[in-house]
Design a protein around this nucleic acid. Structure first.
Length: 588
RNA sequence: GCCCCCUUAGCUCAGUGGAUUAGAGCAGCUGCCUUCUAAGCAGUUGGUCGGAGGUUCGAAUCCUCCAGGGGGUACCA
């Protein structure tokens, strides 16, 4: 298994510290846990650097960081991984990797079908709750972000060896369904389904809403229909099922077009937890957590306040006897812990719901439904904005249909591809345009820190310059092109010995940091760090490509090795993009 | 009122305690195509990191206060 230079240096430093403690050269009580190993920006500061001595100096008043650093370095065990270890002002320890170490690491990565990535030692069962559109409503941009981010996290966690369970918590239950079912009856099955199937979900919903708001008789029917639905009336359930199925068809069309992993198997809608809601109330009551307030059954988790400064309730059961989504979310947590044995639950839902989740998790913990060791995290994301920095809207001011957005991105990608490579056949052009257009949309979303709002700008995301999917895809295609042009096969091996040119070395070192980047994304759930990694990889490859002729290298050995480096870069790009849910075309 | 998030170059964004110059890309300016894809490269212009204090040997980064923007704050999800 590959041990990264970062981990190796960290362990070596810790080991040296223990030695220092044993022989009394550093009178420490404990090894500090805030030692940082980092990659210096300035290459003259080595490949890896640590501030260990500066951190320790805080615990040892009277001693200087320089002295501590020298003491630590003197206690470092012999190590072939580092060709030199320096202590510099004001007390940093800088290490430079040896050619032999880079060679061994690179070889391992090159020969591994997994690019040297180890499977996690302790696989977790991770439930990822994402996408979650509403039945009989259009998917909107909020669902788009959730879908794209969630899907990337699913792929990354699964690739690292975790057991990942996708759950699409669709909105398929609740009072609006009385109205929707009555509307379906009014327009007739055939027409209603027609309308739903062509993706006009929004129109269907709006018509129902309009009728509901203007016709008291329709309101009455709708209310009665809700009661029928909840009591399990077979005819009503059949109509409900019709609506759900039609919507699922529409969602699946979008998912498959986007290249998202979600299928019907992953649907775990609100309706599924319906029967568990009564037990949620019952058990909360048994724990004496439930308080009746203004007629509603509530739990008051500590630390939450409303406008008046009085405690804020999580409403489990409304005063009319109906359940709110808090009840469903609690039932869902129980199901995921008890039935799925989740170690970790990720909720990829927009930022505005952060308080809701904080309260739900707090109540779940109070009720013992979230045992210690089981993590529930709200993976929040910001709004998608238009180029005017306002909430993303179509030109006419309505919500944007996702399908239109996709179509436009693909169409524009197509004309860009055709313009630059007119020799492509019709079929190639179509498939490349899809990969580029959809990849661009996904990448633009993923490349920004998810917690911030981001500006959706088709021009920018489809640009072949800068931190965009087309740029990365192009870097990959260019590598493939080198092999086609040179009629070359990937070399059997790669080496870093006797020495690499500076741009080769920089490329190699960056390739080797793939593992730590992915591990970081798995912990923080911030896929944009993988995007940054891939973008830097492409930039470093471009440097290499400019400075080191591959096919026209000076010797056969050099040519082979550069082909190997190019091949490894190409594989890493394809794998990295794949983990983001983005395809890498062979040519563009 | 209270709570949460945001504010880095003209624009879009990285950078959550470090190393005499805060990084990219776009836009602007100057060069570079008989040479593995110029969809590129090299150079250059541009920032008192919203403001003020504080902690520290060291702050875009941590703490406090202030300003501006967004969101949440009991039966919608």
């Amino acid at each position: 298994m590959v041990v990264s230079a970062e981990v190796l240096l960290h362990e070596s430093i810790l080991e040296a510290l223990r030695q220092c403690m044993n022989d009394g050269s550093l009178p420490l009580d404990a090894v500090p846990d805030d030692i940082v190993i980092e990659k210096p920006k300035n290459p003259s500061h080595g490949d890896w650097s640590t501030n260990a001595a500066l951190r320790i100096a805080r615990h040892l008043p009277g001693s200087t960081p320089m002295d501590i650093a020298n003491t630590v370095v003197a206690h470092l065990s012999e190590n072939t991984a580092f060709s030199r270890v320096d202590v510099v002002q004001p007390g940093f320890i800088n290490a430079r990797l040896s050619g032999a170490f880079i060679d061994a690491q690179l070889t391992e990565m090159y020969n591994s079908p997994r690019l040297g990535l180890p499977e996690v030692e302790h696989p977790q069962t991770v439930v990822v709750d994402y996408s979650a559109p509403n039945v009989a409503k259009e998917m909107h941009v909020g669902h788009l972000r959730s879908t794209i981010i969630g899907d990337a996290l699913v792929r990354i966690l699964a690739h690292l060896g975790h057991t990942v369970i996708r759950e699409n918590h669709i909105g398929d239950w609740g009072t609006p369904f009385g109205m929707l079912i009555e509307h379906l009856i009014d327009v007739g099955d055939a027409e209603g389904l027609e309308e739903l199937s062509v993706g006009e979900l929004g129109a269907f919903y709006r018509e129902a809403r309009t009728t509901f708001d203007s016709e008291p008789a329709f309101q009455d029917r709708s209310r009665r229909r809700v009661v029928l639905l909840q009591s399990g009336d077979p005819a009503t359930l059949k109509l409900w099922r019709t609506l759900v199925d039609a919507s699922l068809d529409a969602f699946e069309t979008i998912y498959s077009e986007l290249g998202v992993l979600l299928t019907r198997e992953d649907v775990a809608g609100e309706s599924r937890y319906n029967d568990a809601l009564g037990k949620v109330v019952e058990d909360l009551k048994a724990w004496n957590l439930l308080v009746e307030s203004d007629g509603a059954q509530c739990v008051f988790p500590p630390g939450f306040f409303n406008r008046d400064g009085s405690p804020l309730p999580l409403i489990i059961q409304k005063s009319d006897g109906g359940y709110g989504y808090a009840a469903t979310d609690l039932a869902t947590i129980r199901d995921r812990v008890d039935r799925l044995h989740a170690d970790r639950m990720l909720y990829v839902v927009g930022m505005p719901q952060s308080q809701h989740f904080a309260m739900v998790f707090a109540v779940a913990a109070m009720a013992g439904w979230l045992p210690t060791g089981v993590e529930a995290t709200h993976i929040a994301f910001g709004h998608m904005l238009g180029t005017d920095h306002k909430m993303f809207k179509s030109r006419s001011g309505g919500t944007f249909q996702l399908q239109r957005l996709i179509d436009e991105a693909v169409a524009r990608a197509r004309s860009a591809v055709i313009e630059r490579n007119p020799e492509l056949g019709e079929e190639d052009c179509d498939s490349i345009a899809r990969m580029v257009g959809i990849g661009a949309m996904k990448y633009a979303d993923l490349a920004n820190d998810r917690t911030r709002d981001y500006v959706f700008d088709l021009d920018r995301m489809l640009s072949f310059e800068g931190n965009t999917a087309p740029y990365l895809q192009y870097a990959h295609a260019r590598i493939r092109s080198v092999f086609r042009k040179g009629n070359a096969a990937p070399a059997a091996s790669v080496t870093a010995l006797p020495a690499l040119a500076p741009s080769e070395r920089a490329l190699a070192l960056h390739l080797l940091s793939l593992q730590s980047v992915l591990e970081d994304v798995a912990i923080t759930c911030r896929p944009h760090t993988l995007c940054t990694y891939l973008y830097e990889l492409s930039s470093l490859f471009t440097d290499f490509y400019e400075q080191c002729p591959i096919l026209k290298a000076a010797s056969a050995e050099e040519r082979e090795n550069r082909l190997a480096l190019a091949h490894l870069t190409g594989r890493t790009l394809r794998e990295g993009l794949g983990l983001l849910g983005i395809a890498a075309p062979e040519q563009m």
